[in-house]
Design a protein around this nucleic acid. Structure first.
Lengths: 194, 194
DNA sequence: TTGTCAACATACCAATTAGTATGTTATGTC
DNA sequence: GACATAACATACTAATTGGTATGTTGACAA
């Protein structure tokens, strides 16, 4: 990676951390250049506007990050119910960068930016759809393998699961990490009944 | 209600609508006084600071509003699974003031303000706990009446339900109202298996 | 070695922000 | 009707905002 590309990625990474904790609109360019030690001229050399940077952040940091944790395990696993639970537990408990107080960066951006900027909305909805599709695909694979005892519509289960994740990230901001524990138990029971 | 109290409540109502659509931090005092036709002097006569107004908004607009829709039906109903579903459907589909693009005012505030202001966080966590308690109580009442066929932990079911709500309000911002429909079907299946 | 351009650095700007200082006016009480 | 105070109105401020105009520097091709 060239030095310029390094600088660009460094700005994106640090901005990601700042925006994760403070929100997109409340994170100023001045604050970003202060913590990155990059001058304003450098920032605006790499990004046309703040929104250009925000969008790059979604596609270049959020997309790759989510794939490894939320999609890949579902593609590779054999037991969908178990795999979905493990992905969720991994996300909620083991991801040390994520703090219950600050929730999930992707969920935060959806909350804040989807209503404000249609370009953000589109990029973020793509993110959601990818996870949704991965869950549906995993459930269908399990159905074909006759793993499940009951009948269900994969799309509906996927929606309950991803909604549960987004919601518990929200509730966790108010009630703390204990919400995660209770939710995970409830999720396990739910998945076992499929 | 005195004229002064009228003015105060009008400011709160209009601010509530603005903040619902734009977010708390992105809604400026100048914008509030422009849409309320109230001068800055009047605003700061009724509220010490912006945060003082925001907090009043939670306790004087959000609290009463949520009680009628989210709590009361659960206290009065006889069939918890059905009652929970109806509350959810009512919230998601019939509440015309709520727009899928803008989600739920309470969820929005939790997302944005819980990490920023501990006073907001406390007021909002109270809101969540009240709904949680109402759901748990309803489920326990149903258990005592031997309505349910399976066994479950009410606290865990309540957490799955309220997380689902918060989450689908989030997903709905990205994917639109169709998410609500899919989620409601999944929720119905879930509740029927209790 | 010199010219060129990518990759930055510095200094600015107009608009917007929450909040204040200092007014004026309406209203109820005696 | 005088007076006090509640309920507003107007004009300002210092700080912060995203963005720009105009520099400078370093590496690499010719």
């Amino acid at each position: 990676m060239s030095k310029a590309a390094d600088t660009r990625m460094m700005i994106l990474q640090k901005s990601f951390e700042l925006i994760y904790r403070k929100g997109y609109q409340s994170t100023s360019i001045d604050e970003i250049i202060a913590t990155t030690q990059v001058t304003k001229g450098a920032f605006y050399y790499h990004f046309k506007t703040k929104d250009d940077m925000g969008l790059s952040l979604i596609t270049e940091v959020l997309y790759p990050g989510m794939y490894n944790v939320m999609i890949k395990p579902l593609e590779e696993g054999k037991n969908p119910a178990k795999d979905i639970y493990n992905v969720m537990e991994n996300l909620l408990n083991d991801f040390v960068f994520f703090n219950p107080d600050y929730g999930c960066p992707a969920i935060n951006l959806i909350e804040e930016m989807s209503p404000m900027n249609p370009v953000f909305k589109k990029a973020l909805s793509k993110l959601v759809k990818q996870w949704q599709n991965a869950i549906v695909a995993a459930l269908n694979k399990g159905k074909e393998a006759h793993i499940f005892t009951g009948t269900f519509v994969p799309e509906e289960v996927a929606m309950v699961v991803i909604s549960g994740y987004g919601g518990v990230r929200n509730i966790g901001k108010a009630l703390g990490k204990s919400s995660y524990k209770t939710y995970l138990k409830g999720l396990k029971t739910y998945l076992n009944k499929l």
